[in-house]
């Protein structure tokens, strides 16, 4: 991974914290919906990933997503909110981070508009997070698993739209920095 400037690292750290806080804030409301749908989650994680996707698309470096996932898992452990995944919680954060990195890398090579790239990335990362949690903890099968993935994907698309909006607003702040350093982060 190429070196990332301190400004970007601080921004990524802030996004990691915001992700954890957003998940905590939205969890009670999300649980009301998921309890009624008889699924173990899938909405709160998308709100957490929203900030990771925003940071990854601003920084645009392979490995940024995984680095933020690792930091988030550390914060979750320190705050005692590792959840039902226990010691395997870092995997639950690293795999969505890897998906974000792959999306930034692969979708960046296509001619897809960036806001659509962000939405697709957030949706795929949400589904990846849901599937990881399912393999590690829940072990859902059949229609329940399909519903779980669908809800994760829908909330991922909605949160991805918010991430695309955030990216659009935040990019000018970092664009000046890029220009000064000749386009390098």
């Amino acid at each position: 991974m190429k070196r990332i400037s301190l400004k970007y690292l601080i921004f990524m750290a802030v996004c990691c914290d915001l992700g954890i806080i957003a998940k905590k804030l939205i969890s009670p409301a999300a649980n009301v919906i998921t309890d009624n749908l008889h699924i173990p989650g899938g909405i709160g994680t998308s709100f957490s990933l929203l900030f990771l996707v925003t940071a990854a698309f601003i920084v645009k470096k392979f490995g940024a997503g995984m680095l933020m996932g690792l930091v988030q898992s550390g914060i979750a452990f320190l705050l005692g909110s590792a959840g039902s995944m226990g010691a395997l919680a870092p995997l639950g954060y690293l795999i969505p981070g890897l998906v974000i990195d792959l999306c930034v890398l692969l979708l960046g090579r296509t001619k897809t508009p960036e806001d659509v790239q962000i939405v697709v990335c957030c949706a795929l990362a949400s589904v990846a997070a849901g599937l990881t949690a399912n393999v590690i903890v829940f072990g859902l099968v059949g229609p329940v698993l399909a519903l779980y993935c669908c809800v994760a994907c829908i909330s991922g698309i909605i949160c991805g739209s918010v991430a695309a909006f955030l990216c659009k607003r935040l990019r000018p702040l970092f664009a000046k920095d890029r220009q000064k350093k000749g386009g390098e982060a």
Binding site: L37, P113, D115, V116, V120, P143, V144, L147, C150
Partner: peptide, 25 residues
């Protein structure tokens, strides 16, 4: 992929999720 396609996918997912929610409940 265009925004229109994304909206169609979202709408399709909502329909699928509704059907699955009925089956699961």
């Amino acid at each position: 992929m265009k925004k229109k396609t994304l909206i169609i996918i979202l709408a399709a997912l909502v329909v699928i999720a509704t059907v699955l929610a009925i089956i699961v409940s």
